[in-house]
Design a protein around this nucleic acid. Structure first.
Lengths: 168, 168
DNA sequence: CTTGAAATATTCGGCTT
DNA sequence: AAGCCGAATATTTCAAG
């Protein structure tokens, strides 16, 4: 008998050189969902939730990490507790001839103030989400780390009044 | 003897009605830092790292949660694994007379596609970070959830090529 | 904040489907 | 391949000092 297509098995990747992690089955979905809500949920409880043995849950979670589906487990910390009560978004446009995007990214990524780096389409090249102590620190950040860089053609800073993360 | 200033004690809040969590001592700092890197680090290991007994570490972490310093523990999931390989930023401007910001926020916060809601200063009122399946879903999202709302005066959508989160 | 002990959870090898 | 079981290790948690 020739091999045949199984409709219940996960499909292979859609495009040829696709780095997408393999599709998640129902159990994986439950585990991922639970860990997204509470990364410290015991393996025990995960197993019970998913209706599998603890050892199986352990293997599943390890596989999810291995496959890159779970990229990490992190505590969400109130920036105010870290003395970073002021958050801002900074649009950054690099010089047209600038081809040192990677170097810029690496340099910016090292700065303590930087929370997110979005590499974006459109007139600007980056949107930086930063968290600092106060307005003075914000100015210092822009002047010292962006204004001083000859590759940076321009910046635009916008204050964040409130930041919500609805999912977790 | 009159009460005197103790240089080692944490200062009280700077401004009168300040909701800032109390300052963190060295041990708290270590715990917060470790849990930010790895939310699943065992309480045991945390204790050893901070140089305190496990029971003390347990109490410290609970206190940090209680005080709102730690807002949660979350697994970081690759959006591609969730079938959300396309991310975008959408600037949203509400009608000048719109005073239903809270209602808008609540409605948007419920949508599965929404990753972050930034309430910002400037010409626009919101910046939404969303993750969707593909360009078609993105268009649908804008039309259905933003374009259809009479309170929304305008939107501007920008694709995210890459999103880095340097800290963890 | 620590100790110490009981209750829970993790983890692995070996076995079953 | 993937899952379960059982048993040794490890961890969590609380009451007491």
């Amino acid at each position: 008998m020739s091999p045949e297509y199984s409709p219940t098995a996960p499909r292979s990747a859609v495009s040829p050189n696709d780095l997408r992690p393999a599709a998640l089955d129902d159990v994986d979905q439950i585990l991922v969902d639970a860990l997204r809500r509470d990364a410290r949920m015991p393996n025990n409880a995960l197993a019970a939730l998913a209706g599998i043995a603890p050892s199986t849950a352990l293997g599943r979670v390890r596989s999810l990490i291995e496959r890159g589906v779970i990229r990490g487990f992190h505590a969400d910390i109130d920036p105010r507790a870290l003395g970073r009560g002021l958050e801002a978004l900074i649009s950054v446009r690099l010089q047209a001839h600038a081809r040192k995007h990677e170097a810029f990214t690496r340099r910016i990524a090292k700065l303590q103030e930087v929370v997110d780096i979005y590499f974006i389409a459109g007139a600007n090249d980056y949107l930086l989400h930063i968290a600092v102590l106060d307005a003075h620190s914000l100015r210092d950040f822009v002047i010292e780390h962006l204004g001083a860089d000859p590759e940076v053609a321009g910046t635009e800073t916008t204050l964040i009044f409130e930041h919500l993360r609805p999912r977790p």
